[in-house]
Design a protein around this nucleic acid. Structure first.
Lengths: 114, 114
DNA sequence: ACGCCATACCTTTAGGCGCAAGGTATCAAT
DNA sequence: ATTGATACCTTGCGCCTAAAGGTATGGCGT
């Protein structure tokens, strides 16, 4: 209770969103999300890899292995189901954040246009 | 993984914020938060009461019992520690939501000043 | 007088999820 | 040869939400 992270669902949202433009591999995702959020959010690998596996098993992502420089990379890409799921997540995220902003009387947030 | 609620820490934040203007009792808080968020967020009593107890035991809230119409009400008020904690929570909340907006807004305009 | 709903408090339980920590292996550079 | 970066992964703890159920009083209509 003392230190809430406000991070429930955020990794899933950020991962799916990061994959929208095209496939990426896990290690790449970790860096990409860090950059996209101006270092504000740093997802550890212990968050990203389990999330990727869970999302794949739910049919949100599909993966393919690729050999690059003698190393194996597992690239993940959105499925159609994953795209729809992402759209719902974004709506839900906006709904919640707007409600909280309203309640705490804070200033409105930047509008997000997809 | 399938249905994240994005609610981590939100009950705590909303409860503390609702108590800023003055003391309230649990049942009242449930309604107040529902109204303040335009029905968007409905915290059940099973969320609010444990949260109140936890926050009190952490010194964020203090309570006093009051008899009204033959019923006992437990009023909760912010302590100085609770006020500071709330301020930190609000900052943290804004930090996270801005970072996420930035990341998922990506291509769109997200003028955010830290 | 009776039943029902709203008020008002509370606990238990289950489940999900983030995250730190630790583990394996390859490649490049010192 | 040892370090650091790349790249994958799992385990286990701990926290929190939320559903469900539990107790009791007051007010309402019939």
């Amino acid at each position: 209770m003392a230190n809430p992270s406000f991070m429930n669902g955020v990794p899933e949202l950020l991962i799916l969103r990061a994959l929208e433009p095209g496939e990426m591999y896990g290690y790449e995702l970790v860096q990409a999300i860090r950059l996209k959020t101006n270092q504000a959010i740093r997802l550890g690998e212990g968050v990203v890899y389990p999330a990727l596996h869970a999302l794949e098993s739910e049919g949100m992502l599909k993966s393919r292995r690729k050999l690059v420089n003698g190393r194996t990379r597992v690239y993940y890409a959105l499925t159609r189901k994953g795209e729809k799921h992402l759209a719902g997540l974004v709506r839900h995220w906006q709904h919640i954040t707007e409600a909280v902003s309203l309640a705490i009387g804070g200033t409105a947030h930047a509008a997000i246009t997809l």
